[in-house]
Design a protein around this nucleic acid. Structure first.
Lengths: 124, 124
DNA sequence: GTAACTGCAAAATATTTGCATCCTT
DNA sequence: AAGGATGCAAATATTTTGCAGTTAC
């Protein structure tokens, strides 16, 4: 299970690092300078998720978006922040503020997936 | 565009009304006493959404869930509450507490889609 | 050399749509 | 009678998987 240093891997990671928002597989494909297969992109992204290099958000459009983890310490890998999806330009932005949701006793949290959709200020 | 009184419509609305959690199309089909086509179920559910009788939540599993609106006044139809999806039993529960997420100026909100997944107390 | 990675095609899953027919009003 | 609703099949869309060939280490 050792990870290897390949062109696709580097390219996708670079794209996610410089992106200001979360990207879906199509957005990544568009931005890539090398041609990569859909399957490869998904496989790379899922590997990144396993390695906790990126986090995945499922939009209210049913699509998977991926964003590079900036403010996640190794031990405390949690993403209790919202994402804003603009229905005009498609951007899926990270909102900085963390959110706390009270849950009933005995509930174990595995994943936080908060998405607000609407129109961003650039598109109004 | 007048809505008609049909068996499918009544059945699905009754199922959603008595459900304690949000249901996806498969769950509705299982609970229905009459056999209904997938397409019909989706069409009925989308009509209910248009009429704001039910609200739709897209889970972090990428599926659409639907829940009857209990505490929505006609004028103030908003759902700023989270849902908890148990990965064991599949239940998609409404969490009562409302959440406020601060957004940058000029952002227009259309939809709130908050899902936390994990294991519920019955399944731990 | 070996195991990880890739591309292509096909499969799996979820949802929508076209169309002929049926049913409510 | 008119047009909304349904069922069936087919189309769409997104993501995953099998497999053979390639590449990193």
């Amino acid at each position: 299970m050792n990870r290897r240093n390949t062109e696709s891997t580097n390219e996708i990671l670079a794209i996610l690092k410089q992106a200001k928002s979360a990207l879906n597989h199509e957005m990544i494909q568009e931005r890539a300078s090398v041609k990569m297969d859909r399957a490869t992109i998904y496989r790379v992204l899922n590997r990144f998720c396993e390695d906790k290099l990126v986090h995945k958000i499922v939009g209210d459009d049913g699509k998977q978006y991926f964003a590079f983890c900036t403010n996640c310490q190794e031990k405390h890998h949690q993403h209790n922040h919202f994402h804003f999806r603009c229905t005009e330009c498609g951007k899926m932005e990270c909102m900085q503020s963390e959110v706390k949701v009270p849950l009933p006793d005995g509930y174990v949290v595995r994943n936080f997936n908060g998405v607000i959709s609407g129109v961003c200020s650039s598109c109004v």
